[in-house]
């Protein structure tokens, strides 16, 4: 399912976000030939001739019986899904533990672009909200072709934000998305779990389906630094801690996992899909998680 040519490290060098989005999605869909996913629309549109090697699931056996020819049924695309991407631009998203890996924000941008491309390819409506302590930019959901360029234009120039107040932001965004739809939150979730869950509850209360892509850097997870390190907070410039990570690694990992477990538990309780990915994870994982959710919804 993964595309070896499109690792996060590689797409970082591609530059153009539209190209990234197209390559990621096309590569992903090509790989879907062997997957159980085979189309998303439900309304019949037309027939087309079967080409050897294609799946026979959508073969119209009635036509074959009458004409002795193989035709596949092609379904028309539905456009009733309104998906809104919420991309966290807070300062903590600018972190990367390795110069060869994209920052969390860049990774979120690539993933958001790929998701937008995929959604629009299916004629779903896509919207975008970027935020740090407060909403920064908002692109209302549309299903037009040119919507992709609107979204990519914002994603291509994600601002460097300040601190994270995710709970409050979610509440404010929820108020501004009145129609039910799919909320795709891309964030490191660096805030108090209670406040985050409170915001997510708001979306659920409004009837939204929510998928949370928690994007973390591997170094944040394992604290894999050696020697004496002076850490400076990205969200609170000037605040520093000097330590030997090797001495604290075990305790840190325990505490970090405890925090993530809380998030998992609360998300599950609120029927929110939590997708934990790190910036060295291929984008297909994010896209696959979205497709699973889409399939459950329709």
């Amino acid at each position: 399912m993964s595309s070896p040519l499109l690792t996060p490290e590689l797409v970082g060098h591609l530059g153009r976000l539209d190209l990234v989005a197209r390559l990621v999605v096309e590569g992903f869909l090509t790989g879907l030939h062997k997957s159980p996913y085979h189309g998303f629309s439900s309304e019949f549109a037309e027939y087309r001739q079967y080409i050897a090697g294609e799946p026979v699931a959508h073969m119209d056996w009635r036509v074959y019986a009458k004409t002795d020819r193989h035709y596949l049924k092609v379904f028309t695309e539905e456009t009733n899904l309104r998906a809104t991407l919420l991309v966290d631009c807070s300062a903590s998203m600018d972190f990367t533990g390795d110069e060869n890996r994209p920052t969390k924000k860049a990774y979120a941008g690539y993933l958001a672009a790929a998701l937008s491309y995929l959604l629009l390819r299916q004629n779903d409506a896509v919207g975008l909200v970027t935020f740090d302590e407060a909403p920064l930019a908002m692109v209302p959901a549309r299903s037009m072709r040119k919507q992709l360029f609107q979204v990519l234009k914002v994603l291509d120039d994600l601002p460097t934000g300040t601190g994270t107040r995710l709970g409050r932001v979610l509440h404010r965004v929820a108020e501004r998305i009145p129609r039910r739809g799919l909320i795709l939150l891309l964030s490191d979730m660096m805030d108090d779990p209670d406040r985050i869950i409170s915001g997510l509850k708001h979306f659920r209360h409004m009837g939204h389906e929510v998928v949370v892509f928690q994007i973390l850097d591997p170094r944040e997870v394992d604290l894999g630094f050696e020697g004496e390190v002076e850490f400076e907070s990205l969200e609170e410039p000037g605040r520093k801690i000097r330590m030997e990570p090797s001495h604290l690694r075990e305790s840190y990992q325990q505490r970090f996992e405890q925090w993530r477990a809380t998030l998992r538990r609360e998300c599950r309780r609120q029927l929110v899909d939590l997708v934990e990915i790190t910036t060295d994870t291929p984008f297909e994982k994010g896209l696959g998680a979205y497709l699973q959710k889409r399939r459950r919804m329709y």
């Binding site: 998203m93 630094f225 020697g227 390190v229 850490f231 907070s233 605040r239 330590m243 604290l248």
Partner: peptide, 27 residues
């Protein structure tokens, strides 16, 4: 080795702060 202190930006110091304050003295 004390002179070779790496300086790094880090996303959020909350967890580091917690564990260091607990173990800093013993460390």
């Amino acid at each position: 080795s004390r002179r070779r202190v790496q300086r790094r930006k880090f996303s959020d110091l909350r967890f580091l702060d917690e564990v260091q304050s607990r173990q800093a003295r013993s460390l």
